[in-house]
Amino acid sequence: MKKSFRSTLIDAILSGAEEYPNMVVLNADSARALKLTDFSAKYPDRMYNVGISETDLVSTAAGLSTTGLIPVVVGFSMFVSEKPFEQIRQAIAYPNLNVKIVATHSGLCVGQDGATHQALEDIALLRTLPNFKVFAAADVTETKAAMKAMLAYDGPAYLRLGRDLAEDIFEDEKPFRPGGADLLRNGSDVTIAACGLMVEQALMAAVALKSEGINASVINAYSIKPLPEELLLQKAKETGAFVTAEDHMKTGGLGGAICEYLSETCPVPVIRIGVDDHFGESGTQDDLYKKYRLTADDIAAAAKKAIRMKGLV
C-alpha cells in the first residue's frame, strides 16, 4: 500500500514529541503543507514558525539547542538544506549541536513544481559536513524509525524524505541506526544499494533480474553517513559488482559515497543510477523517473552491465 511522506511525517513527529518533552519543532511557513498544524494544536508552545526565512530558521534552531532543547527543523529539502547550507555548516555542524533537520520533497519526486524545488544535491552537500549524519527513509515506517533513532543521540542529523506516495517496504517496526542498513534480498551475482524511493525500484529490478536467472542482493542503504561499511565490503567481496540507486545527482550522493568507500577497500565495478549532471523539470514523478532513468528497468540494465564489467577493475 502506498502512503504519503508529507501527510504521515506528522505521526513520526508526534511520537517523537511524546517521548522527548524537550523536543521542539521549527519550520518556515510550511506548517500547513506538512500537517505540522497538528503538532502546534497539541503542543502550542513547542512549535516556532519563523516565516519564510530559512537561514534564520536553522540558526535559531542552533541557538535553541544550546539551552538543552532538541530542535527538529522541518521543511522542504531545497529550503532546509541547500538554501541555508552555510548556516548549517557554521552554526550547527561546526559546533556539533543537537539539531535534527527533516526534509521532505527531496529529488525529482517533487514532480510538477519543477527544477527549482527538486533538491538533487542535498546528500552531496550535507555529507561533506563533519559531525553530520545523513539518512534517507524509504517509506513511512522507516520515517518513524529514523526519527526515533535521530532523537536518541546528541548531535546533528539530516533526514531525507520524498514528497508524496511511497510503497510500503516495511511493516510495523524496523531497526534503524547510524551506520546501519537492511539486506532486503540476498543474491550472489550483483549488489544493488538504494536509498529513499529508489528502494522500491531496486526491489522490482531484483525480481526482474531473477526471472532472467540473475541473483541480486538488495541493500536499503538508509544511512548514507556513516555508511554501512561492513555490509558494503562483505557484499563487494561476495558479489563483485555494485549498482547504486537514488533520486539525487550521481555526483556526491549515495553512489558517490559508495564509490569512494569501495575504491579504497575493495574496488569492484559500481554503476550509479541517479540524475546525470542535469537539472530536473516539471512532470509527474513517473514521467520524470522514466526520462531521467530512475526506474527498475534502468537498475536492472545497470546490474547486467556491472556483472559484465567484473574483473575489469
Binding site: R46, T55, G63, T66, G68, L69, Q87, A91, P95
Partner: peptide, 24 residues
Amino acid sequence: EMTSGSLGIGLSTANGMALGLKRQ
C-alpha cells in the same frame, strides 16, 4: 556561548537562546 565568524548569523542564534530560555 556561540561559534561565530561568518557574519549575519549571530542574532538568529541569540534568538534561539532567548526562545529556549523563555520556554524553560
